[in-house]
Amino acid sequence: MADRFILSRKGMIPVAALVFLALAGLVLPVSALNLSATQYIGSTPAGGTANYAILAGIPWGADPVDLLIEVVGIGQKPDLQYVAVEPIKDTYKYSGRKVVSVNEENVHLEPGIKKQIMLTFQLPADIGDESRYAMVVVHTIPGKAVNASDVNIPVFLTPIGSSPTMAGSITSLDAGTARAGQQATITTGYKNTGNIHQNNLVNTITINGPNGEVLGTYSGEPLSTALLPEKTFEFRVMPDNKNLPAGNYTILSKISLGSGQVIDRKTTTFTVTQDSKLPVSTTPAGSTPAVPATTKSSLPPVLGLVALAGALIILSCRRQQQK
């Protein structure tokens, strides 16, 4: 069967070569929206105005794009993900939706040409020490509904010179009962009761024996996402229960900032009905346990296709040389 070619400015290119280049990531349709910022965290004077510019663009080779930009409320899921909240549903005490505005709601982008989106912040003069939070949503038209092409930009605003309240409360601490051959789950529920977001929260669990001796301590990794005021999160520790003598134990749970400042602490009892063993594995809420590596390995499907395409190119070139 004759080789197939596509005419280009540089001559005839084998179809197999185009397939290889596409799979290698060198010839791909480009439509990604590029923004110079994906989050804004800053301070603004109470009663004053501040601006922040975001550059938006699409790469060369992409189709022109029309954007719709709007300011909405912000929410936070139990896994800490920030989400956009429709204005009609935005009842958040610390909402900054009304103090953030954009200079242009409709923006047209041509490939390779960047445009500036200007955000303006204006905090009330009587805001006190409270921070404000909002979400700037960049939609691709058509449609105002949230979809896969939307980009959410969280906005955190703190009054300059304010003295925010850094406070929180452990709302629940549950250890259940440890049984032989089963894992117990130590769950610590926590709520940010302050008026500012909290960064790098850490949960530390200490288990004491019947005589007060420390039997085990676990400090998880700091949370990588800030917890907004009034929002909650659950930490979970799962020990493997095998070797502890039956009896009652005391659990101390502490929540602290990455700096070491303790926000709150709470104790409860932990009952072991048979022998068990203290913490072997711990998993914060919302995280995925690591999957052990396997000895079996193979090329991913895409790399296999790349290798096949490369072989086709070599074969095509040899045939041309033979001719």
Rank of each mutant, 00 (worst) to 15 (best):
Y190I: 02
Y190V: 03
Y190C: 07
N192P: 04
T193D: 05
T193W: 01
G194T: 00
G194L: 00
N195D: 15
I196D: 06
H197R: 06
H197I: 01
H197S: 14
Q198C: 04
N199R: 11
N199W: 10
N199L: 12
N199E: 14
N200P: 00
L201I: 05
V202R: 01
V202M: 06
V202G: 00
N203V: 07
N203Q: 13
N203I: 05
T204E: 15
T204M: 09
T206C: 05
T206H: 04
I207T: 14
I207F: 00
I207P: 00
N208H: 13
P210E: 07
N211V: 14
G212L: 08
G212C: 09
G212A: 10
E213L: 10
E213W: 01
V214F: 00
L215S: 08
L215Q: 08
G216M: 10
G216R: 04
T217H: 01
T217N: 04
Y218D: 15
Y218S: 11
Y218C: 09
Y218Q: 13
Y218I: 12
S219Q: 12
S219D: 09
S219W: 04
S219K: 08
G220N: 12
G220H: 03
E221N: 11
E221I: 14
P222H: 03
L223H: 00
L223D: 08
T225C: 03
T225E: 13
T225R: 10
T225P: 00
A226N: 07
A226V: 06
L227G: 07
L227H: 00
L228G: 11
P229D: 08
P229S: 08
P229A: 11
E230P: 03
E230L: 13
E230T: 15
K231C: 13
K231G: 11
T232E: 15
F233K: 02
E234C: 02
E234L: 05
E234Y: 00
R236E: 15
V237A: 14
V237D: 15
M238W: 07
M238R: 12
P239L: 08
D240L: 12
D240C: 09
N241P: 10
N241Q: 07
K242P: 12
K242L: 15
N243R: 10
N243V: 12
A246G: 11
